[in-house]
Nucleic acid binder design. Structure first.
Lengths: 327, 327
DNA sequence: CTAGGTGCAAATAATTTGCAGAGGC
DNA sequence: GCCTCTGCAAATTATTTGCACCTAG
């Protein structure tokens, strides 16, 4: 949906290159953080460089939106604001009606619900607007939180992507540990143990990466959450684990594992692809790949186990039994 | 949040009463369904009554918003639209970018997430805007769905409120049936059985009411969902049932039941209070009351059981055991 | 030289407002 | 007769556009 990282140079106005007014406006825009209105931007531009007309600012903004550098947002104030889109995933907004500041968040849970609702209404969604209007913490308490500038946004996003991956990994580990514990077939047990070990190892890698990321910015951990996830991929494995409790044979456990890994893989891949180039994107895609490997292993094992069982007992004994009962 | 059903008569312009232009504008506005822009309304008004100025329409709209008769909504088109607020709960929007139509939905799940996010960001939310932009089914398939006019909206809302109550009731029934099945104490079993029976009976009442509602409008069941719920109160009982599977004594089962009923009661009460006078509101509030009765019964039984157990075994044996281990 | 960017002022579009007159109680 | 509503036209606000001019390649 989001266009890929634009090649800024190719989008530069063909005519002017260095001292073009457009470049100066762009420069001011990219430097400032938050959501500016056209007039805000005009004021800022004219403060550091006279001789730029309001119309130029408007035209430059139009060009930036078209080029994928900026996004036009509407906070219901009767005019539009603009936010940087470059290396900045699509997100939702918290809008303070008192100080007119706005902060951003992303929620895979909200997005999942929106998709569900759109599907239920036979609606082909292209974009969602989610805004929470109210009063921000600063306006009520007076304290100012750590401001989030451009590079920090990317770090926070990477942090949250890692948190999400770690949560999923933990759930996966728990799932495989349980599956190994209740496996009947010795080879099945070995597979689950192997997967549990792998998840554990990968969990370690992710946690190490998380620590490294946090080490680079001591305040990073205390910064507000940007990416909210709850029912995401970690929820899949949690669901799977609950199903395991209900019992079932190794084949079923493998099937549940396959479902979880597939869902998880697709989830991370889809999100990863949606984001613009950033560490967060990379984390998503790497994790998706990891899940794909597990998925393939599980499928192989499932086939192998079924083949082995097929020698002694009929395949799908449950279905066969049900059929007998019906007759 | 929404103001209560306004007393229209008291809000009538003190001056004009019968043929006041304001009344004529209001009349046209209330008659039309959907989301009109000021200009739309002006056109409609002037079509059936000449001699009303554009400014009057604007002023009347302002007055209607202030009086809680209309809500101003912003679909990002560069102008505002207005929707009736009278007997019409706050909701979210699906907006077709092709035909500029818009339909409405409500999702307790989305709302719950928004609350969570606002809380995590230390943000005092007053209102949420959720819009799904895209292409509607009609625009893609050409078919027109059953149009939803004023009274139908209320019916659909009542239908969905009933569906939600029924889903909760079913979950509750399942929960109590399971609890009764695994109860150890004979009196505990009786209580759970009684509650299961009550839920079953009430479920029957709700289903009957549902059938009656549907009988009044044969198309009602096929109309698109307005109220989406998933993790709502029915989810609470489902969670509770899962906890029961893990085992535990009767006291714990009672505690889980108390938690579920309390959550469910608060949920329905809160939503019911939020809505404007309508059958849906009534269903919510009645159901909340039902849950409160169960809650009280459970609390009484919990106390009684603990008192009885206190005679033979020490209270909270689990905690005592854990303490011993620690020492 | 030429395509495009730019300034300026005028045009639009949605909405509000000042003010004189009208209408109901 | 008073108070509020209304109409009309002018004002406001955000944004776009026509057009002549300028500028880099």
């Amino acid at each position: 949906m989001d266009r890929q990282l634009p090649d800024l140079s190719s989008l530069r106005p063909a005519g002017g290159k260095r001292s073009s007014k457009r470049d100066r406006v762009l420069n001011v825009f990219l430097r400032q953080e938050g959501h500016v209105s056209a007039d805000d931007l005009f004021e800022r531009v004219r403060r550091e460089a006279a001789g730029i007309a309001r119309a130029t600012v408007y035209r430059t903004l139009q060009w930036m939106v078209g080029a994928g550098i900026a996004r036009k947002v509407d906070f219901g104030e009767g005019r539009f604001r603009f936010e940087p889109a470059y290396r900045h995933p699509r997100h939702f907004h918290l809008i303070c009606t008192r100080c007119h500041s706005s902060s951003e968040f992303l929620s895979t849970d909200v997005e999942a619900l929106m998709e569900e609702i759109a599907a239920a209404r036979n609606f082909a969604a292209t974009q969602s607007v989610v805004q929470i209007h109210g009063t921000c913490g600063e306006c009520r308490t007076g304290r100012k939180p750590a401001p989030i500038d451009g590079p920090t946004t990317e770090l926070v996003f990477a942090r949250d992507a890692l948190r999400m991956a770690i949560a999923t990994e933990r759930s996966g580990l728990e799932f495989y540990a349980r599956a190994a514990g209740q496996a009947k077939d010795p080879r099945g047990r070995t597979v689950f143990q192997k997967l549990a070990a792998e998840e554990g190892e990968h969990l370690g890698t992710l946690e190490k990466r998380y620590r490294q990321l946090v080490a680079g910015d001591p305040q990073l951990e205390s910064r507000p959450t940007f990416l909210f996830f709850k029912g995401a991929a970690s929820g899949l494995f949690a669901e799977g684990a609950k199903e395991l409790i209900k019992g079932g044979d190794d084949l079923q456990a493998l099937l549940i594992g396959i479902r979880c890994e597939r869902g998880s893989h697709e989830f991370f891949k889809r999100y990863g692809e949606r984001f613009e180039d950033s560490e967060g994107k990379q984390i998503f895609l790497e994790f998706a790949d990891e899940e794909r490997v597990h998925l393939e292993l599980l499928i192989r094992e499932y086939r192998a186990l079924r083949a082995r069982q097929g020698q002694s007992t009929p395949a799908r004994p449950a279905v066969a039994a049900r059929r007998q009962r019906r007759r």
